[in-house]
Every structure is written in C-alpha cells, then in structure tokens.
C-alpha cells in the first residue's frame, strides 16, 4: 500500500468519526457510539496487509476497524442510523457489525473465545486464514480472555490478538485497573507478544505484516500490543481527562499529522477533498435511506 493510500484510509476514518460525533446531537443517529479518533494508525497498520479471506473480530470501538477492512461508509452510517440499508438492516447498530469476514460485538471479553474458535475452525478446515481480533486495555479485566488464550496456545490456533492500549477504560486510567503488565499475560500462556508505542502507521505496518505471516506459516497465536491514544471521548461527551492532557496527546500523537507530513501538500489536499466529498455523499445517502419494515417480527 503506497503512502497516499495509507493516508486516505487514515483520513477517511477520522472524517467518518467526526461526522458521527458532529451529527449525533442533531438526532440523526440512534443509540450510542464509540469513536476511533486518535487510534487510526492501529486499524490501518494492522489490517491493510490482510489476505482477502482473513477474518476480523472487533469490539465496541469498531468503526475504524471496519473502514480499514474495506467496509462501505454508507452502509455503516445507515447502520448507525438504524436504517434498512445498514450492514445488519439496523438490527445491530454501532457495535454489532457483520460484513464479509468482518464481525463485531459489544461485550468485551466474550468476543475473544469466539474469534479464537473461528481461527480454530480455519485450522481444522485446512484453510490458511488468520483471524485478527481487537481488545482494549479495559478488556484485560475480563477473565474469559485467559481461557481463550490458553486454548489458542494449547491447540496452535492461527490468531493475532491486537491489544489497543489507549490507557483508559471509559474513564478509568489503566494504572487503576491493571496489575502486572500486558505482555506477561500472553507470555504466561506461551504466546509471543510484540509491543509498540507509536502513532505512526508506518511503524505498525511492517511489524503487523511480519507477525501475521508468522502466524499463517507457524499456525500459532501471537499478540501485538499497541500503545496508543484516544482523542475522542469513550462515547459522547464523557471524557474526564484535562484539556491540557488532550491538547498534549493531540499535538504529539496524531496519526493523521504524523503520516500526512510525508505527502506533498498539494496531493494531500486534493485527496482530503475527495474523501470529504465521499464521506458527505455516503452520509447524505444514508440520511435519505428508509427505515426497516416491521416484517422482521412477523413469524
């Protein structure tokens, strides 16, 4: 993937999420949302090197993963609006997506054994597919993930556990919820864990690529711990961090800014305008899409 395509992917996620937050108060979207602003380099860096038949299982903060996977913006907007044209016809909403080999669910730890079972099935079926599943630092508090790590290691399951450590679970800092360290949790099960502390997509890409290739060839699980920064609130307007802290991370850890500097200004602007038009077009289509009929209940 060339630099400009990578930037396009980062920028698309940023703009999509900003559109969601900007319009939430207007009542266009229903329910809730968890945006990915600040963490874009993780999704793009990890997912841009997947094979088409690989599988992704994401969590509540799934929009960025879905778009980096190649998902359609209008179908995602529509799902967030509860429209019939949404990915799941409005049944799932923001946290419950499925398209091709992309899945997400809104209960944190419980996703992990399901993703592990998918990878186990791919192995049993002699497919060479890899499963990538995303966890947050908050999810490390739910015990079922350790059952899954144990079985994944025991049964040589081809899965990559990506821990996006944004250092805050909703409003609680990771220091208050995590004893020991993250890498040691994987090592205890004999799972190799690689750790990065960066918001530069170009640092994540080669590492993710090499780990995924190893998982595919060795048929063993691995973990990738990505220390990252979430700029947006957990959901909407529920950020308890100080303005100074947010300004600091936004000025030093912005994946768009970091990667954008590598592009010629003119080409970058042109591409940003294109993406802006695409996001607006997708949004307006979704706004005008119909709501689902009540036929779903007639059985």
């Amino acid at each position: 993937m060339d630099n400009i395509s990578v930037y396009r992917s980062l920028y698309q996620i940023r703009l999509f999420e900003e559109t969601v937050l900007d319009n939430f108060a207007r009542g266009v979207f229903s329910g809730t949302t968890h945006t990915y602003i600040g963490q874009e380099a993780n999704a793009v860096g990890v997912l841009c090197q997947l094979e088409e038949s690989d599988i992704v299982f994401s969590n509540h903060r799934c929009h960025g993963h879905f778009l980096a996977y190649g998902g359609d913006m209008r179908a995602l907007f529509a799902e967030l609006m509860g429209k019939a044209t949404g990915l799941c016809a409005g049944r799932g909403g923001s946290q419950h997506l499925h398209w091709k080999n992309f899945y997400s669910n809104g209960v944190q730890g419980g996703i992990v054994p399901v993703a592990t079972g998918m990878a186990f099935a791919e192995k049993l079926l002699n497919n060479s597919n890899v499963v990538i599943t995303f966890l947050g630092d908050g999810t490390l508090g739910e015990g079922i993930i350790y059952e899954a790590f144990n079985m994944a290691s025991l049964w040589h399951v081809p899965i990559l556990y990506v821990v996006e450590n944004n250092h805050i679970a909703q409003t609680t800092p990771v220091e208050m919820t995590l004893a020991g360290n993250i890498r040691g949790r994987f090592n205890a099960f004999g799972i190799t864990a690689t750790e990065l502390d960066t918001s530069d997509v170009l640092e994540i890409m080669p590492v993710a690529k090499s780990i995924t290739a190893d998982i595919r060839s060795q048929q063993k699980p691995q973990a990738l711990i990505l220390n990252t920064c979430r700029f947006s609130p957990h959901s909407k307007g529920d950020d308890t961090r100080s303005a100074e802290f947010l300004a600091e991370i936004k000025s030093t850890r912005d994946p768009i800014m970091i990667h954008g500097k590598r592009l010629p200004e003119e080409a970058r602007h042109k591409m940003e305008q294109e993406v802006t038009q695409e996001v607006e077009a997708a949004y307006h289509k979704a706004v005008n899409d119909p709501f689902p009929s009540l036929e779903a209940f007639e059985e």
Binding site: T116, M118, A121
Partner: peptide, 18 residues
C-alpha cells in the same frame, strides 16, 4: 480445559465458520 465459557465461545466461533 475446565473452561465452560471459553468452550462455548470456541464452539460459537467454529459454528460461524461452518
């Protein structure tokens, strides 16, 4: 292993893949 929840999760993933 003695992992009732994990086992049901694994089975769910297996079923999603056929």
């Amino acid at each position: 292993p003695i992992s009732e929840a994990g086992m049901v999760g694994i089975a769910t993933g297996m079923a999603l893949r056929g």
